[in-house]
Design a protein around this nucleic acid. Structure first.
Length: 306
DNA sequence: CGCATTTGACCAGC
DNA sequence: GCTGGTCAAATGCG
């Protein structure tokens, strides 16, 4: 993404924002170290809380800085957020639809069904989890495939509101281990659909429910100690087929939210004693084009695509 | 009847 | 040509 043009009056704000983001990156690295090498923090577990607080403060400062900048109004910001989505949406249109714009061409459905455009580079987030819990979004399964060198099939999900609101968010669920069950969940794209309900927090792989964990609430900036799964989580139907559970309940016909937050909604759950690899903040912080103050501020961007 | 899932086929990228 | 991602008809379910 090309960097926006910043008027001189906003140049200082830009510098401040970059400084805050740089600090945030440092704190995120510390958090990553805490997740991957918890033994380094055993002597002072509260330091993890401190790191989280620092990250939250970074977000708050950056949001306020950018928010006061007159160089980017809402329309520009929305355009920056969705430009790639719009382009990919147009690219992803079935070939037949484009052809239909040409009056003289009539293609039999069976001959040329569609034009499948693969995503090239979009916002992604990957996590490994042993719990197939609801991530707060409504997903519809649209495919399942055997993957080479994988013991289990991979399931493909897209946002339920894709047809309604053009939301292009998708995710893939791949079982990578049987015992204990372990799944790699990869999210693609940001939710652009508009759903008023908030997403419940995502629980990142906490195989042992007795584990004491922290919920990071991006809205209230509260650190919530928890002992159990979030009460809002529905129980997961364990419909096993070929050793792979149906994720229908995970996808959520329940009161799921489909707002424009990152897939983990407004909460991020950080196990204090991670037992599995987690690629979370670092993965989406790497995609600078997706780092958006409004994405964190919980503002509704549902009217971006209509 | 409407919506979600299943599954074979199609298609792009490598 | 192979592989993975997506489509869409068929099917199932509430």
């Amino acid at each position: 993404m090309e960097s926006p043009t910043w008027p001189e009056s906003s140049q200082s704000n830009r510098i401040k924002a970059i400084q805050e983001l740089t600090h945030g990156q440092e704190w995120t690295n510390k958090l990553q170290e805490a997740l991957w090498c918890p033994e380094n923090f055993e002597s002072d577990p509260t330091s993890i809380d401190g790191v989280l607080v620092q990250i939250l403060e970074m977000f708050e400062k950056t949001i306020s800085i950018v928010g006061t900048s007159s160089s980017i109004n809402n329309a520009t910001f929305d355009q920056l957020l969705t430009s790639d989505l719009h382009s990919s949406a147009s690219l992803g249109k079935p070939k037949s639809e484009n052809i239909n714009e040409t009056p003289n061409s009539v293609i039999p459905v069976k001959i040329k069904k569609r034009c499948v455009k693969r995503r090239k580079s979009s916002w992604t987030s990957t996590k490994v989890t042993s719990d197939l819990i609801d991530d707060g979004h409504a997903w519809r399964k649209y495919g399942q495939k055997e993957i080479l060198n994988a013991n289990h099939q991979r399931s493909y999900y897209r946002c339920t509101y894709k047809s309604d609101q053009g939301c292009l968010a998708t995710k893939q669920v791949q079982m990578i281990e049987d015992k204990p069950p372990k799944y790699r969940i990869t999210y693609f794209g940001n939710h652009t659909c508009n759903n008023l309900q908030r997403a419940p927090p995502i629980i990142l792989d906490s195989p042992d429910p007795r584990d004491e964990s922290i919920i990071l609430n991006f809205e209230t900036k509260e650190l919530i100690k928890k002992k159990h799964l979030h009460p809002n989580f529905p129980s997961i139907k364990q419909e096993l087929k070929d050793g792979f559970p149906s994720l229908s309940s995970l996808g959520g016909n329940q009161s799921s939210s489909c707002n424009n937050d990152p897939p983990w909604g407004s909460f991020t759950h950080v196990p204090q004693v991670p037992t599995e690899s987690v690629s979370l903040m670092s993965s989406w912080l790497d995609h600078e084009e997706m780092v958006s103050p409004r994405a964190y501020s919980g503002l509704d961007r549902g009217d971006i695509i209509s």
